[in-house]
Amino acid sequence: MEMKATNLTKRYAHKKALDDLTLTLNGEKIIGLLGKNGAGKTTLMRMLAGHFPATDGRLTINDKAPFDHFPVTKDICLIMESHNFHEKFKVKDVLNISAKFHPNWDMDYAKYLRKSFRLEEKQKVKTLSKGMYSALGIIVGLASLSPITIFDEPYIGLDASFRSMFYDLLLESYQHNPRLIILSTHLIDEVSKLFEEVVILHDGKLMLHEKADDLADKHILLSGNKEEIDQFAASKNIIHESSMLGQKTIVLYDEEVSDTGDLSVSKASLQELFVYLTKEEVNGYVPSSEA
């Protein structure tokens, strides 16, 4: 499967959610889609699922536009944070209906997942806790076996133990049915190890799209004596720096370095990269009584 956005723009009344985005995702991979709140992640995912058309530019899946086009969207399963299922349905109904929308649906697998998350067939969606509602979404997404399976923050309210089970199940599902899985999350530290590729959106634009394993080589964290660091990094692309007691730590973006001498070099974590790339500076608030 290949999804291709070309100069894709989506404008809502007051703002651009996606702004001239060009991005291609393909193959059978688990891809992390990251961005701050309002960066455009959910808009992109809902457009992939055919929920609404582009304002400008093109979005295609295997060269066909997904908007309002079931032959394309039948291959896509999008699980959102909420509003996935009608409140009055029972868990059983949700699974039966999902089976009709997803041609690859595996009911035995859905039942196995339902038991793993300890959901009862007869429970009504309305009575599910936030965590168990999220679990139902995860079950549908995994059992859909859709060639493009998209999870948008799929685990609101799910505790650490069930989240860890979700990661196990996701890897297992991917192993048995390799497909394009797009996972959007704010819990970056927890899931970054699952990604083969990472996409970061910022203000509706593409900020980064890389193989997860390459991140470690290209973006690094250096620390050491302040003068040595300053000398070394004089003309380099620094996205973060902080000093304390004559020691300095910097994060370099897209720089390959050698001859680091006594400086200590380590990999910047995905979470660190994400924060330093997208964070707004805090200028320091001074209460008026102190001004």
């Binding site: 991979k29 990661y167 890897l171 192993q175 190890k193 699952l194 990604f195 083969e196 997860a212 394993d213």
Partner: peptide, 16 residues
């Protein structure tokens, strides 16, 4: 896949 499962990592990372 065994590495991926044990360490909860992407199989492509283990393969690399």
């Amino acid at each position: 896949n065994e590495f991926a499962k044990h360490y909860q990592i992407n199989p492509a990372t283990a393969a690399k």
